[in-house]
Every structure is written in C-alpha cells, then in structure tokens.
C-alpha cells in the first residue's frame, strides 16, 4: 500500500529529553492520540481503548530504546479501515541492536510462541514482548527499518475495527 494513500490524522514531534522525562508521558500521549484516532470509527470508546493500548506499548518501547538526544516523531495516518502509526526514533548502537533483533524475531513469524516464552521467562522483561503482543493480539503488521544509520522507522498498520467487533 503506497504511503500517499494514507491521510494524516495527527503528527507530533518531541525532543527525546522531553518525552523521556516521565514514564507517564507514554500513557498520556497514547490516551490523547487514541481519542483523536477514534473519531469516525464505529464505536469510538472501544476503538480508543484498543488504540491507546497499542500506542502505549510502542511508546514504552521507544522510551526504553532510543538515543539520549534528538527528536521522536510520530504520526497517525488513516486509509479506510487501516490506521497507521509511524514512528521515527533516534538510535544509539544499543537501541539499533534492539530494533534489529526485534525485526528479526518478527520475521520469524512465530510471535505467539515467542510471546508465551517471554511471559514466563525469569529476569528482565524482554521489551520485544511488546511487538510480539501487538502482532498476535491486535493483528498489527509491523515494519522496522533503519534510517541514515542513526534512527529507526517503525511502521505499524492496524485494523482495529476488526479486533473491536
């Protein structure tokens, strides 16, 4: 699907320092944007609840994996029943390695098994669990692409009307 087919609903750029100043920013942004994104959907509160769950998970991932400086940019776009969340995250080598590993795991096509294992694993939370859950529970199509050697683009396509009904 060509990008030109998608219309912008909302765009937001934030300095990393501002975004990463408080964990609750993830929840607040997700809640606000989800309300915007739910306008025009069949059942807005239900849609908003699903959308905020997805967006919060993505924002929590980039909260944990990003460069200390730069700007986070994200957009919500729409084409018919598909909503797209497009995120651009400045990355340091550690964050790049995380996203590369996440991309490889998503390509393996067995997100459900990976998710179940991660749920029961001891020790630190593997934040890739967020991606696997979006793929399995919300039917998200996730593309992770490195850009210019110091940033990552995340494109997440969602058909949440189907999940909601």
């Amino acid at each position: 699907m060509a990008d030109a087919q998608f219309e912008d609903i909302i765009r937001l750029d934030m300095p990393v320092g501002l975004f990463a100043a408080n964990w609750s920013n993830c929840d607040r942004i997700a809640t606000y944007v989800a309300r915007m994104a739910s306008i025009g959907r069949q059942d807005p509160p239900r849609y908003s609840n699903l959308f905020s769950s997805v967006l919060n998970e993505l924002l929590e991932i980039i909260f944990c994996y990003r460069a200390p400086d730069g700007a986070v940019a994200f957009a919500v776009q729409r084409h018919g029943t598909t909503d797209r969340i497009a995120l651009s995250v400045p990355c340091d080598p550690s964050a790049e390695a995380f996203y590369a590993a996440a991309r490889d795991s998503l390509k393996s096509g067995d997100s459900a098994t990976l998710m179940d294992k991660a749920l029961l694993a001891e020790g630190e939370l593997d934040r890739r669990l967020g991606f696997w859950e979006l793929a399995v529970e919300y039917g998200a199509e996730i593309a992770i692409t490195p850009v210019d050697g110091n940033a990552m683009h995340l494109i997440v396509d969602l058909k949440l009307e189907a999940v909601a009904s």
Partner: peptide, 14 residues
Amino acid sequence: LLRVNVCGFRELSR
C-alpha cells in the same frame, strides 16, 4: 481493568 502493558501483564502471569 481498562489497559495493562506488557510489564503489568507479565507480572500478573507470574
């Protein structure tokens, strides 16, 4: 329970 992130859900699982 309106929303739970993966960290919270993993803790509930545990």
